[in-house]
Design a protein around this nucleic acid. Structure first.
Lengths: 97, 97
DNA sequence: CGAAGATATTAGCATTTCCTAATATAATAT
DNA sequence: ATATTATATTAGGAAATGCTAATATCTTCG
């Protein structure tokens, strides 16, 4: 778990948005993420690749889909960061609305 | 408070190191930070400028020195992120030692 | 005032990051 | 087999980031 790379991964808005979706406990295919985050297929796939490479998410092939979900085995110190960041992101969104 | 810029600021090692020092509750001049973080004057000054511009630290002129300290008025949602990140950084360092 | 110390800023360059467009791969359906 | 759907990867370019070296600013000291 490379803290620097994790923070860097979270600092990109589309990736942060993906984490918000993916950390609801469920699984989400790239096509769903693309649509909800308004991203092209290539961009979305690439961003999910980054999140996967730093260990924040895991994926699983399911027929023609790839299902992403939050990595359930994150170290506690990292999980606390994710929780705090997602909470702050949510706070932001409410303030903006 | 721009979450994206805050995470980006924290993702740079010298700046994270500066946050670790500056968030001990005290004040620290650039010359101290440069020395402890092994950075040139220009680099250190620039990095502190970034931390200041995103609101993570505040500064104060004191004779020929500029004293930096953690911004004491951070929103709680941001403070939680800082705490979690500094904690994870410390965990990392202990693991590496 | 002129020298010295501390900090900030500028200029130029190298590296990284992110994007689009195009192409490749994998699985399903006809 | 071929077409379709979903995803990944590649290539090329634009923009952002970080560094060094040099210069400017501000404050103290003699």
């Amino acid at each position: 778990m490379d803290l620097r790379r994790i923070l860097s991964a979270l600092s990109e808005p589309t990736r942060l948005g993906a984490m918000q979706i993916v950390c609801d406990g469920g699984e989400h295919c790239v096509c769903e993420l693309m649509e909800r985050l308004n991203a092209t297929q290539s961009r979305m796939s690439r961003h999910m690749g980054v999140l996967k490479s730093v260990g924040l998410v895991v994926d699983r092939r399911d027929a023609q889909w790839v299902r992403y979900r939050c990595n359930p085995d994150l170290p506690q110190s990292i999980q606390r960061i994710i929780d705090a960041v997602l909470d702050a992101a949510e706070t932001d969104e409410k303030a903006a609305a």
